[in-house]
Amino acid sequence: MCTTCGCGHDEMKIEGVSVHAHEHIHADGTRHSHAHDHRGPHGHGDDHDHTHEHPGQEHHGHAQAAAQGVEQARLVRLEQAILAKNDRFAAANRARFAEAGVLALNLVSSPGAGKTSLLVKTIEKMRGRRPLAVIEGDQETRLDAERIRATGAPAIQINTGKGCHLDAHAVGHALDELPLSRGMVLFIENVGNLVCPAAFDLGEAAKVVILSVTEGEDKPFKYPDMFRAAKLMLINKVDLLPFVDFDVAAALSAARRVNPFLETIQISAKTGVGFEAWLSWIEKGAVAVGG
């Protein structure tokens, strides 16, 4: 279990190191790992009660209430948002960014839309203008963080294991490893997925959704939550437009139907088209947060 925040994501790794390794070694030398925490008694599917004897250890209060054998059903009103915990971590991240004067952007797209290439090119073009940092989210491998580091910008890789999105808690841990400085732009490259990252606030100033012209122009209708949550849409790989059937006007109209306030820029990480507009959008955001 994580000692700073008390939660237990067994699969989450930052730079290949598990943040939440949760393994016990008992006095008799046996090892086991738990998915649960130890704040309360364990529940059992059936109504048996028992106690475990671990030599020299006193945890695991299995018996407790169940041992009393009293069937007293009662209602506990909670009325709690399921994502309340993530939202609390996101608020803490947001406060951290505000205090440090850092613009945090959450980059989201389908797999293969060109997020990492776009990021590499963005860093190359912004080099020397502002301090930059990157948090990379992927289910597996550190390949993307290595690509970013090759540009000279500091990058931290979060591997979500089977998780399909970054959450605010993992980003908070990554921030512990990244020194923030005033005026910095922090790019958070989310796991390639247009569904799940929409629900998880990371504390960013804005979500930037990237749609490439090798995808369907109806994506905003298929994944409305993400396009509604985003502030900016980058239509990427526009250098390929002569070779594909992608209808830019249809994509823009779908996106604006879902989110009339969405700003849009057509861009190519390959040719550099559209970067002037993209970089000035970033600059405006960085100035707005006081950096």
Binding site: V70, E71, Q72, A73, R74, L75, V76, R77, L78, E79, Q80, A81, I82
Partner: peptide
């Protein structure tokens, strides 16, 4: 949201 729990 979690509304309520029936517990014992």
């Amino acid at each position: 949201r979690i509304l309520e729990l029936e517990v014992e």
